[in-house]
Every structure is written in structure tokens, then in C-alpha cells.
Design a binder for these strands. Structure first.
Lengths: 202, 202
DNA sequence: TCGTTAATATGAGCGTCCCTCACAAATGTC
DNA sequence: GACATTTGTGAGGGACGCTCATATTAACGA
């Protein structure tokens, strides 16, 4: 499998350009979240941003490039948000670690809505996601090893895969019923706490 | 949200028509699995099946309809497969229940490859998936209540949601590394057994 | 055997999509 | 103001899903 080079967005040089780019990304985020990636047309995005179609292509050479710019914003926010988790993690018991990780996912829920529509439709995004997921799993593994020194590297890595998979349940549940404080989220906390407890006990 | 009426596939009346339909669905399954739903063109599907584009549209009035026919095959096989789980479930401890459910997902892994490409791209399929998931959760809840009479209906329903979500981890892991017997699947068995054990203990 | 009817087969062409391009307008710098 | 650079514009090219008028094939009674 070869690395796919994707034409990136062209940086705006002047103030007006920066506003345009921001408006275009915002319009794309709204429409992708509303109708999905494929159902959204480039003409539509340009219209909602108050720009001509050619102006959209001036900054984003393809629909994929716009999706990637959107994804980059999400990735930056996610990385910053997890840094906060790492600050709070040391010394906490399994139950609190589980809550920290669940809350991390809950906080990103809103931003995620737009990017979630991309991950399945845009080939380039799928590949961009992988290193991000790898990094997250690595950081989770570090937290686990810090909490239980007896854990081998492989054991921590395997456990981190499971933990990250359980964390993915959160946005799936939040999407199906976003009304109350969600008893199902509580049940997911229990699930994750059980597993982390088992891992730390090993 | 209104119910979306989707034009269904036209049933072939003669033997040659049935062969055509089978060849077309097979071609679609192959191509969707290879390149994804959006990247696959209707012309391509017709070509691989050895048919003209008009012949394809004779039986499937739209690309979505073809996707739905594909999905139906998967749904039928899944239902039949879970009936076998229900036969074996009564009287088993948590660990064995977990293994039964994980193995159920593993068995469907191959067929799932083609349909997984659709679920995110085809709006009609997303809606068709929902009742299927509801039915699965209901049947899991029944198994749980049979194993623990003290469980209320709501408790069993909530637990079934979590169990079905954990089961979704299986194909995700099988996709990332389909080489060895997968130690991560073993870790998922442990996770599910832990949770079901907790539920049955309540 | 043949004629009739329904089923199946065909591919040029329509509308819409993503995207290109030649050129016009606006902005910053001297 | 002159000039270079950035930004703005929309008609049109190529490819897609899909339609339709028409041709071919299969089934069955006379």
C-alpha cells in the first residue's frame, strides 16, 4: 500500500482570504453534519459561505481537501483535550480513570458530529485517522503502565486497544439518544471500570 | 422524520433473469468490498456481471436498491446464525455466553465485509439497520433475563445495549489485523465475560 | 410450426456532480 | 497612482447515476 499524496488546502495570505476560508470550513462542517459528506455538494457549500464555486476551489483544491481541513481542526482539539486527561490521571483508581476517559469522549462529542460523517466516506481521512488512533492508544497504554508497574508493554498495548474500543461506544450511544444524562453512559462507565480494574489487578 | 419509501428490486420471472440478478449482486458485493460504495460505478458492476447498464437497471432501479438487496442477504444469514446462539445459550455461565456471542460475530465477519461498506454511505441502509439492531438487542436481553430471573426488563435492556456494543468491537478488531487467532479477540472475550458476569450477579 | 405476449437486453443521451480555466476585481506596497 | 499579488467569478469539460425507445429472447396456446 503506497502513501497517498493529497493536495492540501492553499493558505490564505490576506485578511479577507482568512475569513473566506473560515466561512467555507464552517459551511462545510454544518452541511456535512446535516446531510452527510456525499450528499453535500460543493456548490451548496460555496453558496452557504456566500462565495462562488471558483472561490471555494481557490483555497481547497478538492472536496477531500476541505474535509481534511475540517478533520485537522478536530484532531487539534482532541489532542489538547487528552493532554488534560494525562494531567489528571496519575494515582487515580480504576473507576476514576474510566470516568476520565469517558468524559474525554463526551467532551469531544459535539465537534465529532461533523467529522464522523467524513471518516467513512473520504478515503484520505481514513488514513489520517490511523496514526491519530495509534497515538491515542499509546498514550492510554502509558497511563495504564503508570497505574500498574507490573504490566508488560504488550499487555498494556493490548489493554489499550480494548479501552479505546470501549471508549468508542460513548459517541455511538450519545448519537442514538441525546436527551437525558443517559443511563447507558453510566453503564459504559461501569464496563470500562470493570475492565481497567481487571487490568490493574494483573 | 418521514418514512422513506425506496423503490425495491424487481423480481426476475425467468431462469435467465434469476442468474442475472445473482451475478449482479455478486459483482456488486465484490466491488463494494474492494473499492467502497461510492467509488464503485454502476457501469463497472454491469461490466463485471457481463451485462449492459440497462440490464442492471431493469432489476435494480437504483444503486441504493442494489445495496439493499445485498444487505437483505446479510440480514437473513445473521438472523439464522443468531437462532443457533439462542439454542445453545440456556443454562450457560457468563464466560460461555460471552464466547457464544463473540463467536457469532466472528462467523458473520466475512459476509459483513461487503455490507459494512454500505452502512455508512447509503442512507436507506442506515434506516434498515435500526430495526435489525433493535431485534438483536431484544434477543440478547431475553437471554440475559433467562440467565438471571432477578433482572428487571429495563436492566436487561440496558445491559443488552452494552453487550451489543461490545460485540461490535469484534469486526473492528478483525479488520485491523486478520492474521493470527488474534489475542485481542481473547481480550474482548474477557471484557464481555466480565460485564455479563456482573450483570448476572446483580 | 407459428404467432403473440411478456420478459429481458441494449446503449445513446439527460441532468447533476466535481472540478478547470481564462479572465476580472480587489488588495497591499512603493 | 502603478504594479504585483491575491482573491473572485461562472461557463463548461468529463464522469457519474439513471431513463427510455427499441431490439431480442423465451414461454405457450393454436
Amino acid at each position: 500500500m503506497s502513501i497517498e499524496i493529497l493536495p492540501t488546502a492553499k493558505e490564505p495570505k490576506r485578511e479577507r482570504g482568512k475569513q473566506r476560508v473560515a466561512a467555507l470550513i464552517d459551511a462545510g462542517a454544518e452541511l456535512f453534519a446535516e446531510k452527510g459528506y456525499e450528499a453535500t455538494t460543493m456548490t451548496e457549500i460555496a453558496q452557504r459561505a456566500g462565495a462562488a464555486i471558483g472561490s471555494l476551489y481557490q483555497f481547497f483544491p478538492s472536496k477531500e481537501a476541505l474535509a481534511e481541513a475540517l478533520f485537522n481542526r478536530y484532531a487539534e482539539r482532541a489532542a489538547a483535550s487528552f493532554a488534560r486527561v494525562e494531567e489528571l490521571a496519575p494515582g487515580r483508581p480504576a473507576r476514576e480513570l474510566a470516568d476520565l476517559l469517558i468524559d474525554y469522549k463526551l467532551a469531544l462529542r459535539t465537534d465529532r458530529d461533523a467529522t464522523i460523517a467524513l471518516s467513512s466516506s473520504v478515503a484520505g481521512i481514513v488514513e489520517r485517522r490511523k496514526p491519530l488512533g495509534d497515538a491515542l492508544r499509546g498514550r492510554i497504554a502509558s497511563i495504564l503502565r503508570a497505574a500498574n508497574r507490573a504490566l508488560s508493554e504488550d499487555e498494556a498495548a493490548a489493554a489499550a486497544v480494548i479501552v479505546s474500543q470501549v471508549m468508542k461506544i460513548v459517541p455511538a450511544l450519545a448519537a442514538t439518544e441525546n436527551e437525558r444524562p443517559l443511563p447507558l453512559i453510566g453503564e459504559t462507565r461501569k464496563l470500562l471500570a470493570l475492565y481497567i480494574g481487571e487490568v490493574l489487578r494483573t
